[in-house]
Design a protein around this nucleic acid. Structure first.
Lengths: 203, 203
DNA sequence: TGATTCACTGACCGCTCGTTCAGCGGTGTG
DNA sequence: CACACCGCTGAACGAGCGGTCAGTGAATCA
């Protein structure tokens, strides 16, 4: 039990630091989030971070993982529901809008994940850890599209490219939504995006 | 004539430095492109850059402007052609694919433009200069969409959000194309994207 | 041919930021 | 109460950056 208690305390510290890192990265962007500011945000000394994370890279990496799995879980719940492709699509859009709305700053971290910056070494590291996450996300959606094609719900088109188009197009609208001071009701945007994806814009 | 010759030489130097900056930014990303590396790439000393550009910010800004106006001109030509929305759409897609293919590294610079990183001060400066460019791009497309709606070619939908969806969705596919070692024929991707935008994916 | 100019150079400076580590204070123990 | 322990601290360090400027040498002038 004593052992377990230490572990709990340790886990708590790690979580505190990760949360602080997420807030600072979301506020300042990946490249200009400093260890000092993260430490201040967490209410601890800069050196303490190094007791729980090897270096800055590891902290950033773990922060990404933690943040992404949150979003991933929600989307997964929406995808695993039984129903038509259309229903799944709407559920996924709702989950994403909901998540980005609740974590208004998170989209910045999400963007950093896709387009890493920093030193060449940092970039390599980030690519190795973050791009697979993005790629598996794209492949997950591509898989859903393939199923829908097999069931004849949607046309036969390159699933990977389709998935990319849908993900990035939706993201752009959702990000605009988040930046918008007075966004329209979520249903309106879901309607717009889902309609656009399913039926296009031709009258 | 002597005066003009000096100006030509000066213009040539500026162009050389800008080209070098573009290559380095494309290779390393905005935040980690150093003045030293840009100087090395241009085959001059670091100090020389400061004879032609006030500081790093100005160099980056001018490099963006120069690079973007290239792409902008091509898209504008495609948009000003007479024809239906569908024809314009295909022409714009072709122009973009063509341009990104010819300047394989440019997409990275294009991405940096949308999602600035670096110090807080750098970010403010970059936002001031680059986001308006992106915004005017979105508004230009939104305008074309509005016209097409007025002519009844496409459905009545929020033009700004539609423009965002189309631009980012297309970009994602085009970027994937550029990264692809053996991309399919440009026509195939144009067909995919245009079909997707116009008629959606429902079978 | 000696003097003058000036575009260019690169060692240098000040600064920021990631990383380290000697020391501090609170806590449990004998 | 004294002692050992250890998580935590933040001053200090060094690497790497943008920006500077005294110096250099080739071209031009007188």
């Amino acid at each position: 039990m004593a052992r377990s208690k230490e572990e709990v305390v340790q886990e708590f510290r790690i979580q505190t630091i990760r949360d602080a890192a997420m807030r600072v990265i979301a506020r300042k962007g990946m490249a200009s989030a400093t260890m000092q500011e993260i430490a201040d945000e967490a209410g601890i000394a800069k050196g303490t971070i190094y007791l729980y994370f090897r270096d800055r890279d590891e902290l950033v990496e773990k922060t990404f993982e933690s943040a992404m799995s949150d979003l991933h879980d929600r989307v997964e719940v929406a995808l695993e529901k039984e129903g038509s492709f259309e229903e799944k699509l709407r559920a996924v859009l709702a989950a994403q809008i909901d998540y980005f709305q609740a974590n208004r700053e998170f989209f910045r971290l999400y963007i950093s994940l896709r387009y890493p910056e920093g030193s060449a070494q940092q970039q390599r590291r980030q690519k190795r850890h973050c791009q697979p996450q993005y790629k598996s996300r794209v492949e997950r959606i591509a898989g859903v599209l393939r199923e829908a094609m097999a069931r004849g719900e949607i046309r036969q088109l390159d699933p990977m490219r389709l998935a990319l188009f849908i993900i990035e197009g939706s993201n752009a609208v959702i990000i605009e939504r988040v930046l918008d001071e007075a966004p329209p009701p979520a249903e309106a945007d879901i309607e717009l995006i889902a309609g656009m994806i399913l039926d296009g814009i031709r009258s």
